[in-house]
């Protein structure tokens, strides 16, 4: 059942991305271009997503455990450190260069656009590099 729930969640995400127009890097860059012809659509996407997600968080907060799992697995770290800010800064530069963040890039894979696939391959390589460096740093 957990697998089915994860599939349904992914499907909703992909549908939402396609409907919202966020698969289109030109629109994403239009939102990020505050000095140009600013396109506010991404603000509505994020706003709508956060409001519904917040309702979900409220419901989850009243539950002793998730409906299909033993416990909630939610980040407990509250430290704002160099890794968080440095990583987010790097991500933002890449996002601003291409107009792709991880969700839309992966959701676009079956559409088969070659330049989108090149971005996804590079993104996976970047994640893989981090995995290698991180596993080297943790020796226990």
């Amino acid at each position: 059942m957990k697998i089915v729930a994860a599939f349904a969640s992914g499907l909703l995400f992909g549908l939402g991305l396609a409907m919202s127009g966020m698969l289109d890097p030109a629109r994403v860059l239009g939102f990020l271009d505050f000095a140009g012809a600013w396109d506010p659509s991404l603000a509505f996407v994020l706003g709508g997503a956060v409001v519904v997600s917040m309702a979900g968080t409220r419901v989850a907060g009243r539950m002793r455990r998730p409906a299909l799992a033993e416990s909630f697995d939610i980040p407990a770290n509250r430290r704002i450190d160099v890794k968080l800010i440095g990583g987010s800064a790097m991500f933002g530069i890449g996002w601003g260069l291409a107009g792709f963040c991880p969700g839309p890039a992966l959701a676009a894979v079956p559409l088969g656009i070659p330049t989108a696939l090149i971005f996804v391959a590079a993104m996976l390589a970047g994640m893989w590099c981090f995995g290698i460096m991180n596993s080297g740093a943790r020796t226990n």
Binding site: K2, A5, A6, A8, S9, G10, L11, L12, F13, L15, G16, L17, A18, M19, S20, G21, M22, S41, L42, F44, V45, L46, G47, G48, A49, V50, V51, V52, S53, M54, A55, G56, T57, V59, A60, M63, R65, P66, A67, L68, A69, E70, S71, F72, D73, I74, P75, C101, P102, G103, L106
Partner: peptide, 26 residues
């Protein structure tokens, strides 16, 4: 379409949290 699409993304996040207890972070 942006607002409704965003709400679907929020519903995805709520579904994964409530059912599986996980964060929908791609």
């Amino acid at each position: 379409p942006s607002l409704v699409g965003g709400m679907l993304i929020g519903l995805s996040s709520a579904t994964l949290l409530i059912l599986n207890g996980r964060i929908a972070g791609i």
